[in-house]
Amino acid sequence: LQAFIKTLTGKTFTVEMEPSDTIENLKAKIQDKEGIPPDQQRLIFAGKQLEDGRTLSDYNIQKESTLHLVL
């Protein structure tokens, strides 16, 4: 599935991932794409901060969901 990552500066980019991917995997993909170390990334979806060990499906993240990236 493709999801949108929106930063506080208003920049939006897309990442490809599977519902079974962990938040940790997602942070690694963001690092590959944007060069931001995972330990500096905080991802917010539906008002909740996402925990590394959980999966996208745990948070009911669907295709074309928008996640907010806070540094």
Rank of each mutant, 00 (worst) to 15 (best):
L1H: 06
Q2R: 14
Q2T: 15
A3N: 03
F4W: 10
F4A: 07
F4R: 11
I5R: 00
K6P: 02
K6S: 11
K6W: 09
T7L: 14
T7S: 06
T7W: 06
L8E: 15
T9R: 10
T9P: 04
T9Q: 11
K11A: 07
K11I: 09
K11V: 08
F13A: 01
F13P: 00
T14Y: 11
T14H: 07
T14V: 12
E16R: 08
M17D: 01
M17Q: 02
M17W: 12
M17H: 03
E18H: 14
P19N: 08
P19L: 13
D21I: 05
D21L: 04
D21K: 02
T22N: 04
T22E: 02
I23A: 02
E24D: 08
E24N: 07
E24P: 02
N25D: 12
N25K: 14
L26M: 06
L26E: 01
L26H: 00
L26I: 08
K27E: 00
K27H: 01
K27G: 01
A28K: 15
K29A: 07
K29F: 05
K29P: 02
I30R: 00
I30E: 01
Q31A: 14
Q31C: 09
D32K: 12
D32W: 10
D32Y: 09
D32V: 13
D32N: 10
K33M: 14
K33D: 03
K33P: 00
K33H: 13
I36M: 05
I36V: 07
P37S: 09
P37W: 05
P37A: 08
P38F: 14
D39N: 12
D39E: 11
D39W: 13
Q40D: 08
Q40W: 09
Q40L: 12
Q40A: 07
Q41F: 14
Q41G: 02
R42M: 14
R42V: 15
R42W: 10
L43D: 00
I44K: 04
A46P: 01
A46E: 15
A46T: 05
G47Y: 04
K48L: 13
K48D: 06
Q49K: 09
Q49G: 05
L50D: 01
E51V: 06
E51L: 09
E51H: 07
G53H: 14
G53F: 11
R54P: 03
L56K: 00
L56D: 00
L56G: 02
S57T: 08
S57G: 11
S57L: 11
S57Q: 12
S57P: 03
D58V: 03
D58R: 02
D58I: 02
Y59L: 06
N60D: 09
N60Y: 06
N60H: 09
Q62S: 13
Q62W: 10
Q62L: 12
Q62Y: 10
K63C: 07
K63F: 11
E64H: 14
S65H: 11
S65A: 12
S65V: 15
T66F: 08
L67R: 00
L67N: 02
H68Y: 15
L69I: 11
